[in-house]
Amino acid sequence: MMLERTHVQPLTVNSSRDEPSTDDASVAPKIRASGVNVSYSGRLAINNVNLDIKAKSVTALIGPSGCGKTTFLRCINRMNDLIEGCEVTGNITLDNEDVYGSDVDVVVLRRRIGMVFQKHNPFPKSIYENVAYGPRIHGQATKGDDLNQIVERSLVRAGLWDEVKDRLDAPATGLSGGQQQRLCIARAIAVEPDVILMDEPCSALDPIATARIEELIDDLKTKYTIVIVTHSMQQAARVSQRTAFFHLGELVEENEAKIIFTNPSDERTRAYVTGSIG
């Protein structure tokens, strides 16, 4: 019965996409987290996080390792549900709908909130099949021209089309690391999400590949809301409009990126961005 209701009231409708982008602070946030606590088997990992994430911009989550930034990211599309003993309390909304609501189907939710992982993880299939995977499982297109179009469009947006268009049937694992990560981004955008979560997407890549991904992120923000976790402050400074600093499981400070990096209000943030803690 619960699932039935979910179906009738689909989260898939993407209302905000065609509205003009705006920086106006009065516009409701795409994602709003309030009072979020996460514990793993009783051990508190993040504590009382309140954060608004704006639509069609890049928000970077920074902080020393183990500070809870990845944990928070994985709360947004409920990937933490997969971890046994993980408990999330508090409230997260996507377009004012409770992500943890009882009528929310994670399958539908994750279609709207795509994710790119730390280690590039293309499936051991062809390049084409990797991109086509999402549309196929969600039944957006199962074969023929529709699917071809989605695959091409996604690869073009991910900036990979020119490199792979002649070998779509080649195994994805044969690509270089950077290409594989861009393929994973293409795979994520093929299902037409609103939000893309990126968990240290460049940590396994060389500087040149990293630069390409950063360019890509910059392009993508015109269409998608992007939340990126990074351990590199330089990267956060380069790609994000707003930056949130996590420390010891708490959200210390969130503000426009240039303010965080030049004139943070919290002492801990200052210490971190100047390199004295880390």
């Binding site: 699932l3 179906h7 189907d105 399958v107 499982i137 969600h138 039944g139 957006q140």
Partner: peptide
Amino acid sequence: MPGVVDRHR
């Protein structure tokens, strides 16, 4: 398009 309900079943 396979419904979400079918997928869960």
